[in-house]
């Protein structure tokens, strides 16, 4: 089976979408000759030309607005915001325009756009280039929010996001770009709003997103040596959320841990916990539902400080073990 990186998978998905549909185009800062800050669009300028791989000035609100306007008039733009931190500069267009025009216009317009952006820490880029802000978008009706955790999902979810007739915030992770995985060459889709059970297990349900999925799998492999079986679940699409597999899993395990990189307070984990607590899984709980997430601080520069700011494999191992052993 062919293995390629997460960044290559994204590029292949974008290339296939642009080849299949002339209304698909990409727009963003340094996506042309430079190939994107993380190389996702490398080479596409030569294949598709400057009319469809559009390098922009440093104008994030303009990029977002360009996507909204093009999407409203028959195109399928794929915008890139170079670092997720910079979505702050696009919020008006995304939150007040892209998300709302369909509803405000009585359902008579659609905004089929994708906004790709890399989130996450671990690169030593400090507080303004390392944030995980996905839950801001989860809070906005009209948006969809996708976070692929593997190369396979990156391609399949990107193609599904481009097909979708709604604005999709497509949150990538910097540490995943160079990770490899099995990716079929054909043009396949991973449907949006389809939660994935990544690894089956019977003792603790671990719901993880983005880079935390592979960390949770590593934790599961370690705990398996102790006879503790984690069931690792990746929602993949945070909004609209397919929560049924999570609830089913917790009914089986009776224990749940939610892991994400974003700051815990007000984070997506709270939503998952509430879904579990408000569901029929409540009656099956044998322990408090726990969260493991980023500390409520900006991401620091120093490597060790940065490392300790967000959940690592050993943190997941420790938390899941305590849950499994009934120590909560």
């Amino acid at each position: 089976m062919r293995e390629i990186t997460y960044a290559e998978a994204l590029r292949e998905g974008l290339r296939q979408a642009m080849t299949a549909d002339p209304s698909v185009f990409a727009i963003g800062e340094d996506i042309g000759v430079y190939g994107g800050a993380f190389g996702v669009t490398a080479g596409l300028l030569n294949e598709f030309g400057a009319e469809r791989i559009i390098d922009t000035p440093i104008s994030e609100a303009g990029i977002a607005g360009a996507c909204v306007g093009a999407a409203l008039t028959g195109m399928r733009p794929v915008g890139e915001i170079q670092f997720m931190d910079f979505v702050t500069l696009t919020m008006e267009q995304i939150v007040l325009q892209a998300a709302k025009v369909r509803f405000m216009f009585g359902g008579k317009a659609s905004v089929p756009m994708v906004l790709r952006t890399p989130s996450g820490s671990g690169t030593g880029a400090a507080a303004q280039h390392s944030e995980s802000l996905e839950n801001w978008f989860v809070h906005v009706p009209g948006l969809k929010v996708v976070m692929p955790s593997s190369a396979y999902d990156a391609k399949g979810l990107l193609l599904a996001a481009i097909d979708d007739n709604n604005p999709v915030i497509f949150v990538e992770h910097k540490l995943l770009y160079k990770t490899k995985g099995h990716v079929p060459e054909e043009m396949y889709r991973v449907p949006l709003s389809q939660t994935n059970v990544v690894r089956e297990g019977k003792h603790v349900t671990v719901v993880a997103t983005s880079v935390m999925v592979s960390r949770a799998v590593q934790a599961a492999e370690e705990l398996a040596k102790e006879g503790i079986e984690l069931e690792v679940i990746d929602p993949r699409t945070l909004k609209p959320l397919d929560d049924a597999p999570i609830i089913e899993s917790v009914k089986k395990t009776g224990r749940a841990l939610v892991v994400h990189e974003a700051v815990e307070m007000g984070g997506f984990g709270g939503e998952i916990v509430a879904r579990i607590a408000g569901s029929e899984a409540f009656d099956y709980l044998e322990a408090p539902v726990r969260r493991l997430a980023g500390l409520d601080i900006p991401i620091p520069y120093n490597r060790e400080l940065e490392y300790h700011t967000v959940p690592q494999v050993e943190n997941i191992v420790r938390e899941a073990r305590k849950l499994a052993r009934g120590e909560y």
Partner: peptide, 25 residues
Amino acid sequence: NLGANGIVAGGVPIAVGVGLSIKMR
């Protein structure tokens, strides 16, 4: 008529996208 906007200048960057769309089409 792509609509009135309640945000001052909200429609101004959208015009860029409409212009791009016209050009590409």
